[in-house]
Amino acid sequence: MAGMNDIKARIKSVESTMQITKAMELVATSKLRRAKETVERTRPFYQILGKAIDDIASISEEANSVWFDGSRSSKTLFIVFAGDRGLAGGYNSNIFKLAEKLSRGKEAIWLPIGKKALEYYKHRNYDIYSDIFANAADQSVGSILSLGKIVAEGFANDSYGEVVIVFTEFVSMMTQKAVYEKLLPLDVPKAAEQTEFLTDCDPNEIINQIVPEYVGGILYSALCESLASESGARRMAMNSANKNAEEIIGSLMLHYNRARQAAITQEITEIVSGAEAL
């Protein structure tokens, strides 16, 4: 009967798609496990770094260091962490949506990390600051620290007056959230929170040495969070793709069996009526 072969072909095509999504889910799961460990390892660094920079900020009493003043340039640098690949559910588009929202009404320059981010901003002819860090999965601690240095230098040279990072926070295996954080200028500590710190050399010199490392450290944490989130998002997306594929195969099977049954019934009817005619 008509349709039987068509249905069979469709089942086959869905099955082969499912094979791919299943493989991708497995890959994402094993990557996720490793990325999760990395995130958990870097978290204490991130927390202590954040607290230490507050302490350090308070040593420059008059806070006239360049790092506290963002008024020398009206531009904002957005560092956007996205994935190298698609098929990760809303992972990439959520980040871009958040970044668009943040940049509205601002003079924005972009530093994309991840091939998808580079593609996105290139396609829209946005002002791209640097594209040498486009491959998110290839970055190491060393390369991110040198990125931190570049970002801090650009700020000190007045290429931009504000640095904002947009990344995906790895909340859990099931949830990832697009978030942002202002990196520079540093917040001037409130007078009440200030503690007296003793230093041997010029406080500004210490700050100048520490800030690039601080920026690099925060960027590295954001990258780890993003990579873990990407695997998490992809695993979830592939998981639901598998479920959908199973559902489709189920309903196609039903149609197929029905068609087969109908074909058999018709054949029998034809034979019986043929025999009667004799």
């Binding site: 230490a52 302490d55 350090i56 040593i59 503690t195 007296e196 710190f197 003793l198 230093t199 041997d200 050399c201 010199e205 210490i206 040495q209 520490i210």
Partner: peptide
């Protein structure tokens, strides 16, 4: 070792920061 020389910390050190 700091850029200004060697520093030793003992218990009860005053609040301090260095690169």
């Amino acid at each position: 070792n700091t850029s200004e020389g060697t520093v030793e910390f003992l218990a009860g050190h005053i609040d301090y920061v260095t690169a």
